[in-house]
Amino acid sequence: MSANEKILEVRNLKTYFFTNVGVVKAVDGGTFHLKKGQALGIVGESGSGKSVTSLSILRLVPKPAGRIVEGEILYRGEDLVKKSQKEMREYRGNRLFMISQDPMTSLNPVFTIGNQIGEAIRKRQKLNGNDLKEKIIEMLKLVHIRASETRVHAYPHQFSGGMKQRAMISMALACQPEILIADEPTTALDVTIQAQILKLMMEVREQYQTSIILITHDLGVIARFCDYVLVMYAGKIVERADVKTLFKGNRHPYTRGLINSLPHLGKKQRRLETIKGQPPDLLNLTGGCPFEPRCDYSVERCSVEYPPVESAGKGHLLSCWRWREI
């Protein structure tokens, strides 16, 4: 397989939630792709559709309210949207794996860490007894868990937050997925542990050529880790670019707002910059650009018509009526 092959291609993905009070368009027309070994970042505020995008790829959108209503998710040319849940089991684990936001709750409290990692290993290799145990210990060592021989028998509540997230990563390693989705893997951890976990994920990526989708609202993490970035707002991808372009040559007012709100080292600031206003209510979206009420550049057209996706350079796509002037 060539390094440039698209291993995942998402086209016009629409995942909606049908609730009692109305339809929430959590993801509304997501199109992007992921190449072998690439690290794709997805940024956006809470509720912008980042997590729903990743759950859609795994086909684990919360039922019965959530549903993929349109679009294709092509994994090596196979459309995952058309697969049954039973068929999806062949893709989950071995090919797609997700590390979720909260390591505290993502491990089962009543089974040992070893048992839970063992399940992931057995998905790939039929090992039993001592062979399995040795493999589990090996996995724990890979994620730098000390005294792994005894930790195998520990329960999640005996692990710290960072150790739990390592255990999750070791599960991912055991599965050796082609695509690893990390949904805010460091949000619930403190800063020093964050750095360790990210370093570990970089090791995984280099060693196994794993493609990574990293969901975060931390632009610092994006800058260090990702090759290519999607910026999401209210269920739509508003700008996508390689990481350098995103930070230096961004054209979407929302992206600009996000980057401006970062604190600058060595620059005296009384207050951090913010994006004024609130994220929109996804139940009451108009036909226009959802960012329009908060946008400094908005014109009349913005509130009535959603801007088309346009190219602003190689691999740099965005949706804004006024990007040429910004």
Binding site: R89, G93, M98, S106, N108, E119, K123
Partner: peptide, 23 residues
């Protein structure tokens, strides 16, 4: 969340429900 983790691992629905959830 841990039920989702079990599903992400690609475990069969039997194991997800009878092992992970039921215990």
């Amino acid at each position: 969340d841990y039920i989702r983790t079990a599903r992400i691992k690609g475990l069969s629905e039997h194991i997800v429900v009878l092992k992970h959830a039921f215990k």
